[in-house]
Amino acid sequence: MNKLKFILTLVVITSLNSCKKEEAPTPESPLKDMALVLSSKTNVDAYKLDIYMMEDPFVGFNKIYIEVYDSISGERASDWNFTLKPMMTMMMNGTTMQHTSPVEQPKFSKEMNAYEGAVVFIMPTSDMGVWNMDIAFENNRGSGTLQFSPKVVEKDNPALLSFLSASNPDKKYFVALLNPTKPDVGINDFEIGIYTKESMMSFPTVDGLEVTIAPEMPTMGHGSPDNVNPVSMGNGHYKGSVNFTMSGLWHVNLTIKDGDNMIDEGHYFAIEF
């Protein structure tokens, strides 16, 4: 009995300890399984920034997490403002061209204990063009800018579609696949982001479109029942669900309309697992 008490006490002490430790930056971070793309000191006190991405940068919707903590005390900051500015610089026939891409500016997430933002890379890094990412930060004690150069790759099954509107050939749309990130048989959350291009420097989100999905196994020619069409949630995001009745290669066919105007049909996301 005494032994049991002793063990229980130990357990309590251990768990108290672990609670305290949670404030320290690294080991218990929810980000620890992600790729650390940049770790840098700042010019603000002893604060450091760690920048994580879910996976290596790819053409499509990339989440970016920024951890801000005091390198001495380990204390985290949640009152900073960040501005991401991705920039593609291309050399074409001796002239330099630049354009940015859709971006979601970081906001502090209590769940992740970090700032969460996203960037939609719309083309891969190549011999002709490179991406640079500016991360501007400010708070009441100072401000600054960090930069890194993500090497963006195209996935085997593209996670970004781009096309011209069927009813307005001057308007270009980008549709990024946000979910499922880990597709599996059964019911999967299905989420996409829709963006348009206003200028080389402006890629705003598009809300309020009507999106219909139709999953299909291309080799077999069959679909799946009970899918939920994605609906506009604001901020360019559309959420629904897709059902996969078996594993293998699936195409999720999209039809996108703006009221009565057809924007696109026939494009699909290829998903395999």
Binding site: V185, F244, M246
Partner: peptide, 10 residues
């Protein structure tokens, strides 16, 4: 896997 499969058909 079987449980998830059945979910996919309702």
């Amino acid at each position: 896997f079987g449980i998830k499969q059945l979910e996919a058909i309702g």
